[in-house]
Each structure stands twice: as structure tokens, then as C-alpha cells.
Amino acid sequence: MSPSETSSMSGWLRTDRTLPAIESLRSALLEPVQAIAFWTAIGLPLVYVPMLATGAVWQNPVAVLAILVLNIVAFVVGHEHNLPESGRSQH
């Protein structure tokens, strides 16, 4: 067995077909996840306005913090949505 077929780190058997399949699955899921995150990051701030207007910000500070953290995560995950390939960073 050649070194390219096995991984000493994980102990899993890797074949030349496994990596393209994983890469294909990753690329198939990446766009929809980025799109959902992008639009969540756009729409989630609309939740802040009613919370401020009704005073829910002061009644539920943990919920507000959770929404804020979710918004930040959505911005980070969705920041490359719909960018041209030349503008995307290589991960």
C-alpha cells in the first residue's frame, strides 16, 4: 500500500476515489450553506428593531446576545456568498 492510500494520522484507509468524493460533497454543500448564512445575516438585524421597540432587549438579554452571536456567525460563514471565483480566498 502506498503512502498516498493510507493516513498515519487517522488510521483510515484512503483511496484515490475518497478525496474527490469528499471534495465534491463539500463543494455541493458549501454554496447553499453560504447562501443561507448570507441571507440570515442580512435579515436577522430586522429582529432587533421590534425587540428595541417593545423593550424585550432588557427583559431577555440572553436572547439578544444569542441573536447577536448568530448574526456574527452568519456574517462570517456567508461573507463569500456569490463572489466571483477570482475574489474568493483559498481555504
Rank of each mutant, 00 (worst) to 15 (best):
S7Y: 00
S7C: 14
S7D: 14
M9P: 01
S10W: 09
S10R: 01
G11W: 09
L13Q: 10
R14I: 13
D16Y: 06
D16N: 04
D16H: 06
R17H: 12
T18N: 08
T18D: 14
T18M: 08
T18G: 01
T18E: 10
L19R: 08
L19W: 09
P20R: 02
P20Y: 05
A21D: 15
I22N: 05
E23D: 14
E23S: 12
S24K: 04
S24T: 13
S24C: 08
S24V: 01
L25D: 13
L25T: 15
L25C: 11
R26F: 15
R26K: 10
S27G: 02
S27Q: 09
A28D: 13
A28H: 13
A28W: 11
A28P: 03
L29E: 08
L29W: 06
L30T: 12
L30H: 05
L30Y: 03
E31F: 12
P32V: 12
A35L: 05
A37S: 15
A37T: 03
A41P: 06
A41M: 03
I42K: 06
I42A: 08
I42V: 15
G43M: 03
P45C: 09
V47N: 10
Y48S: 14
Y48W: 13
Y48K: 02
P50A: 10
P50D: 08
M51F: 15
L52F: 13
L52V: 12
L52H: 07
L52R: 04
L52C: 08
A53W: 07
T54E: 00
G55Q: 07
G55W: 04
G55A: 08
A56Y: 05
A56H: 03
A56K: 01
V57E: 01
W58A: 15
Q59F: 05
Q59M: 06
P61Q: 05
P61R: 00
A63T: 10
L65E: 07
L65G: 14
A66Y: 02
I67K: 03
L68C: 07
L68M: 01
V69F: 13
L70W: 02
L70F: 03
L70K: 00
L70R: 01
N71L: 04
N71G: 10
I72E: 07
I72A: 14
A74I: 06
F75W: 04
V76S: 01
G78K: 03
H79P: 00
E80N: 09
E80T: 09
L83I: 05
L83T: 13
P84Y: 13
P84R: 11
P84K: 11
